[in-house]
């Protein structure tokens, strides 16, 4: 079943002069088609300015298409009557946790969303508890958010979205401001929500290792989809990816270079274990000879 369906999406950023006349029009998204299935984990990569964040903001109605259509859970985002239902279906997490946390106590912050939806008090607390458990932050429910680390704050922000009971979470560079510890905490949490709770995940990131966990990778360039496929298929195209100003995981690049040097190992290696197995096979074979 389709969770998010995008058809012929075009978006123009319009810059107006002092009199309100159109001074400049920039096409941020140029005829994008994308179908994200329920329960899928999709990573979106691309350079700064490639249109990834603009695309993400269309997925919960923060931006509306200049042309084309986008459906979230079957609802057209241009349908104003559905806007709140759409935002509840697809929750968004942004880069800077400090801009997303408003409560002075963790559990109050997480309860803010459902409270706004008019959820009965008792159910709010159940949802808060469950969401905090899902992101592994239940021990901090009475803490003040500003005493948490970046990774913990970001998990609280995710819990805040989860308390709205969304079917889909869109994360726009959620780890850009975090240290390695915080990064792995957040990514682990997101993967668990996807695998255990069946939440559809759309992850925008500049970290290629994070994209390696996705079911599908979409690479954006100049407002268009440039590449799309499984991480293995996409990262196998090392040259195309590097030419477009992106990168591949270190182990993938190492494997790619060794392959070019003539070692008989598979394309699109994504993990240390895969490379070890492939090199070991070659090594054993040579030893036998």
């Amino acid at each position: 079943m389709s969770m998010i369906k995008i058809k012929d999406l075009i978006y123009n950023y319009i810059k107006r002069d002092e009199e309100g006349k159109v001074a400049e029009e920039n096409r941020a998204l140029d005829d994008v088609d994308l179908d994200i299935r329920e329960g899928e984990f999709v990573a979106i990569l691309g350079r700064n300015g490639s249109g990834k964040s603009t695309l993400a903001k269309h997925m919960n109605g923060l931006l509306l298409p200049s042309e084309g259509t986008i459906w979230v859970g079957g609802m057209d985002t241009a349908d104003e009557d559905k806007l709140w239902k759409i935002r509840q279906t697809a929750g968004m997490v942004f880069q800077n946790p400090d801009n997303q946390i408003i409560g002075s106590v963790v559990e109050e912050d997480v309860g803010f969303g459902p409270e706004n939806l008019g959820v009965p008090t008792e159910e709010i607390w159940q949802r808060v508890e469950r969401s905090l458990e899902e992101v592994g932050m239940i021990a901090y429910r009475k803490s003040s958010p500003n005493r948490l680390s970046g990774g913990q704050k970001q998990r609280v922000a995710i819990a805040g979205v989860m308390a709205m009971k969304p079917r889909c979470i869109i994360l726009d560079e959620p780890t850009a401001m975090l240290d390695p510890n915080g990064r792995s905490e957040v990514i682990r949490t997101v993967r668990e929500l996807n695998q255990l709770e069946g939440i559809t995940v759309i992850l925008i990131t500049h970290y290629m290792e994070e994209a390696a966990h996705a079911d599908r990778v979409v690479v954006m360039k100049h407002g268009c989809k440039m590449l799309e496929g499984t991480p293995r298929e996409v990262f196998a195209q090392v040259d195309a990816i590097k030419d477009s100003g992106l990168d591949v995981p270190q182990v993938t690049e190492l494997a790619y270079r060794l392959r070019k040097r003539g070692l008989d190992i598979p394309e699109g290696i994504l993990s240390t274990q895969e490379l070890t197995d492939a090199l070991k096979a070659v090594y054993m074979e040579r030893e036998l000879k």
């Binding site: 995981p249 190492l254 274990q273 490379l275 070890t276 090199l279 070991k280």
Partner: peptide, 20 residues
């Protein structure tokens, strides 16, 4: 302390453990 080492450093250790 939550920092780690570059991925290729881990690759080389993994290769050594595998007997290469």
């Amino acid at each position: 302390i939550g920092l780690g080492v570059p991925q290729v450093t881990r690759v080389m250790e993994s290769l050594e453990r595998a007997g290469i």
